[in-house]
Design a protein around this nucleic acid. Structure first.
Lengths: 236, 236
DNA sequence: CCCCAGAATTGGGCTATACCATTTCGCCGA
DNA sequence: TCGGCGAAATGGTATAGCCCAATTCTGGGG
């Protein structure tokens, strides 16, 4: 092994990101693919793969015959699979949890179907009120197949469930979400400290690991006054 | 030129898509990269680029040392930049428009800022009630820089504004959206034929062309009872 | 002075090859 | 019979180079 464990792609990527962050204004031309290849002692294809990635992320755009250019700075990050904890930290808020409970129950029809297991199979149901800087933002019900999560999670639930799953080799790689606009019933509204019938998001999420196994089904209610959903979309 | 205008990637992609659609069950193993390369007379790198794309789209997943596999069928398509018209057609509904008006007005602070033009610069404001199978679903306000869209759009507004823009070489390539949950005020509720204070989505969108010029600012109100937001998210 | 044709430049697509990292599977020995 | 080890197979990363397509630059002619 080298003293450098990372590949040329990673180094090139970091170099380009620092260029984009420090030196280049939007619509400035980047060095040409051929010159980057020479400078880094890499092949042009390697350079292209790195630029492909940056283009997909919306950081650069390319014009055939002309060059590669820095994109306009983005207001919102491209849609990513993030946990509540990561999401809040990205917004500069301190994530936490209140009113945590966990229990093992039969999956039932809806959760069983979503997780691809029998309705009578046991799931671990985690119910949490998620907070940002101590204020309730989201009422969340997570259902995990019991078979995948032995034992009790306990104190880990105050933090990030995704980070806990990753520790078990169950890092979510893909999630399907359905987002609905709704209003809060009085009981849920009280938990979130807002008036009954306030507007809210209902997010239904199923998360899958790299092999496509469903590892989590979650239903989350977000206060509309404190939460908006931001995303950047690209057309192929 | 050949009689075949398309490259090997395109042919390979179509072949793999038909495999995924007709022959392969979820988690079935695809042919190996090396065998596909040989079968199609292509290099392995070309095969990999096509598989990279399919992997990003969530249609296949790869396991190093093992193979490439068909993904679980997806409930929702990956988030894409689609017009209302495309979105509704994808759901099997017939898109249309009611109560169309267009006018040229000063951009104002919010729209001007979003479009990156002067608040006093003129924009074309298009207001439409969008329908699916004749039923009102969405109340939409689009603002386009006047400089980019000369003349009047007229009857074109009954159909897809994006398709109209594409005809002017202004096809949106990227859009930033903020989605909020809200309730409808009485006037908007009446237009959408629902009760006042019904839940709804407020989608604020700015669309950009390939060069990063803002080509549209839109504010849309969607009926929550008839519209949900579905997306699939991938973690890099 | 302007315009246009052709050269130079730049990204797009592809080939052929090499070696590394991880997983799988069969063979061999205990 | 079972366990483990190593070879084989598979995806991951990278090289060097070719030609095409689109854009940009440049110099000569009107």
């Amino acid at each position: 092994m080298n003293e450098e464990a990372e590949g040329k792609s990673a180094r090139l990527r970091r170099h380009l990101l620092s260029l984009l962050g420090d030196e280049l204004a939007p619509h400035d031309r980047l060095p040409t693919e051929r010159s980057l290849a020479e400078e880094f002692g890499a092949s042009r294809l390697t350079v292209r793969l790195v630029l492909d990635q940056l283009e997909r992320e919306g950081r650069v755009y390319r014009v055939q015959g002309s060059g590669t250019f820095a994109s306009e700075p983005r207001i919102a990050k491209s849609v990513e699979l993030t946990s509540f904890s990561e999401d809040m930290r990205a917004r500069g808020l301190r994530p936490g949890s209140l009113a945590v409970t966990e229990e093992r129950i039969p999956a039932g029809a809806e959760v069983g179907y979503a997780l691809g297991i029998s309705p009578s199979a046991e799931v671990l149901h985690v119910r949490r009120v998620r907070t940002a800087d101590g204020e309730p933002i989201c009422l969340e019900h997570s259902y995990l197949p019991s078979a995948l999560v032995p034992g009790t999670l306990g104190e880990a639930l105050r933090g990030s469930l995704y980070e806990e799953l990753a520790g078990h080799g169950l890092a979510p790689r893909r999630a399907e979400q359905t987002i609905r606009a709704t209003v809060l019933d009085p009981a849920d509204a009280r938990e979130l400290r807002v008036a009954a019938f306030s507007p809210a998001f209902l997010v239904q999420r199923t998360a899958y690991d790299a092999r496509g196994r469903a590892v989590e089904r979650a239903l989350s209610l977000y206060r509309a006054d404190r939460y908006s959903y931001e995303l950047t979309i690209y057309r192929d």
